[in-house]
Simulated assay, not measured.
Amino acid sequence: MTADVQHQTRGFQHAALIIDDDETVETLLAPVLRRHAAARDNVLVVVNPDTERTLRAVLGPVASAIEWGEPGAFYQRLGFAFSGFRRYLQEQYAAGRTVHIIAEPDVATDLDSPVDRVAAYLSYEAMCNDAYAPYGCPVTCLWDSRRHPTLVIENVRAIHDHELTRHGRLPNQRFVPTAEYLGGRAYVTMPPIPPTTDQDLVVNTLDDLPACRFAIGSWAVAQGFAGLAAEQITSATNEIVTNGLCHGAAPVRVRAWHHDKMLVVQADDAGGRPIPADAGYRPPIRPGDGLGLWVARQFADVLLTHTLGNRTSVRLYFPYAVTHQGMDVRSR
């Protein structure tokens, strides 16, 4: 790490506040906000409505000195949320401002879902330690232990380098660095593909891509997804199939299926080349950088990768409600 980067990251801390009861926010977080207000520090609070109401009631007039963000403006598809906060921090850094972000992730453990959305979000949280650090702004994340299993809370603690406790903001001795955490997630097996899928295509060359795009786009519309959403699903699919052809090996098998209102697309190439654990989390920087997995992570809510033997798989999940958030469409 260069001296310049060390200087930029000096103000960055990624802290967790684990909410155990109704008093946690009042006794641990409210005093932090009071100190910020008294010092006229910049702070952005993006929390769920119940937490915001509690904080406003406890803070009283002090609440008017706090910037309150709209959760829906940040928490959409997981890639959108990650990029939205990153873009905000980048803008503050460019303006010479240091802002303490206090955020409560809008994700819930759902045992009936075909994909573990919380686990996918935690990978983004782990990536924050690298991607947000250059902007020098502290970030505190609120996680409610009453809404999530113990294992989730343990993973939350593992990816935050500090924890806000009754004894203050303490360094986390069990902190797991980004590369190590994401590397472990890369070996997690994907849920099985259903025996029958809606689409089963084979792409041998780049010339086959138009037919693949047409099939996926038509399928998404037939499943009730709006035109813009279908275009985004098609674009994300196009990127992962192109990656399979260019960085893996043909043929690329593309299968698509639905689970209630969620669409799922998987591309399997024959290269067997592992995808880097941090691929697609950062936007391309240089003109020659490929968009690939970054585009796919922006358009899909969850993206999973797995390599076994001579097969590399990329799977995309598109829940109806999340995919259409912010679009002018009626809910199905």
Score class of each variant (00 low, 15 high):
247 H>T: 12
231 E>R: 02
197 T>C: 14
212 C>G: 02
218 S>L: 05
208 D>W: 04
206 L>N: 09
221 V>H: 08
237 T>G: 06
207 D>P: 00
221 V>M: 13
231 E>L: 01
199 Q>C: 12
231 E>C: 00
198 D>H: 14
238 N>Q: 09
219 W>I: 13
250 A>Q: 14
248 G>H: 06
203 V>H: 09
200 D>F: 03
209 L>Q: 07
196 T>W: 00
220 A>N: 04
249 A>G: 06
217 G>T: 05
226 A>T: 09
220 A>F: 03
225 F>A: 12
206 L>D: 13
229 A>L: 10
249 A>R: 13
196 T>Q: 09
215 A>V: 04
210 P>M: 11
219 W>F: 15
247 H>G: 09
237 T>E: 00
196 T>C: 00
247 H>A: 12
212 C>R: 07
210 P>D: 12
243 N>F: 07
234 T>F: 02
198 D>M: 11
211 A>W: 08
238 N>E: 11
199 Q>T: 10
224 G>D: 13
247 H>F: 15
220 A>P: 01
215 A>K: 09
236 A>M: 04
218 S>T: 12
200 D>T: 08
249 A>F: 04
222 A>E: 14
247 H>N: 13
230 A>Y: 05
197 T>W: 08
216 I>W: 03
204 N>W: 05
195 P>E: 14
225 F>M: 15
234 T>K: 08
240 I>N: 01
248 G>Y: 05
215 A>S: 14
204 N>S: 10
242 T>D: 01
196 T>Y: 01
237 T>V: 04
203 V>K: 06
246 C>W: 09
236 A>C: 05
203 V>T: 12
237 T>A: 04
216 I>K: 03
200 D>W: 02
214 F>P: 00
246 C>S: 14
246 C>H: 13
228 L>T: 11
232 Q>T: 00
241 V>M: 06
250 A>P: 15
243 N>I: 09
235 S>F: 00
207 D>C: 00
224 G>C: 10
249 A>Q: 13
222 A>D: 14
228 L>H: 06
241 V>G: 03
204 N>M: 05
215 A>C: 02
218 S>I: 00
232 Q>L: 00
240 I>C: 03
207 D>Y: 06
195 P>S: 14
196 T>L: 05
239 E>W: 10
207 D>S: 11
217 G>H: 07
241 V>N: 01
212 C>P: 01
